[in-house]
């Protein structure tokens, strides 16, 4: 499987985030604002990481959302871990 681009991942996070913020589909979300400022609570965090795990097939612990607190940061981080899994040479 080829690793999705950071842009595609940003769109994925954006799409799922909009659902868990209970916004109408397609609502604009600031990719550089922390999730908590956007109104994501602990219920939303667990729901979001659950969706990302389903879509991407890699574990996404809820802490990830706190360590990478914006759409852009989280997408970049997901790109990194997916790239690491896809590239056996860099595996330890």
């Amino acid at each position: 499987m080829t690793t999705p681009s950071p842009l595609a991942l940003r769109e994925l996070v954006d799409r799922r985030l909009v659902i868990h913020l209970d916004l109408p589909p397609g609502s604009p979300v600031d990719h550089d604002r922390p999730f908590t400022d956007l109104g994501l609570d602990s219920t939303g965090v667990h729901a979001l990481v659950g969706d990302l795990e389903d879509e991407l097939g890699v574990p996404v612990p809820p802490e990830t959302v706190f360590d990478h607190p914006t759409v852009r940061d989280l997408a970049d981080h997901l790109h990194d871990i997916l790239g690491r899994d896809a590239d056996p040479v860099s595996a330890p």
């Binding site: 913020l21 209970d22 916004l23 109408p24 609502s27 604009p28 109104g39």
Partner: peptide, 9 residues
């Protein structure tokens, strides 16, 4: 009161 939605709309 908390808002569920608080976009510009």
């Amino acid at each position: 009161h908390e808002l569920d939605r608080f976009g510009a709309d």
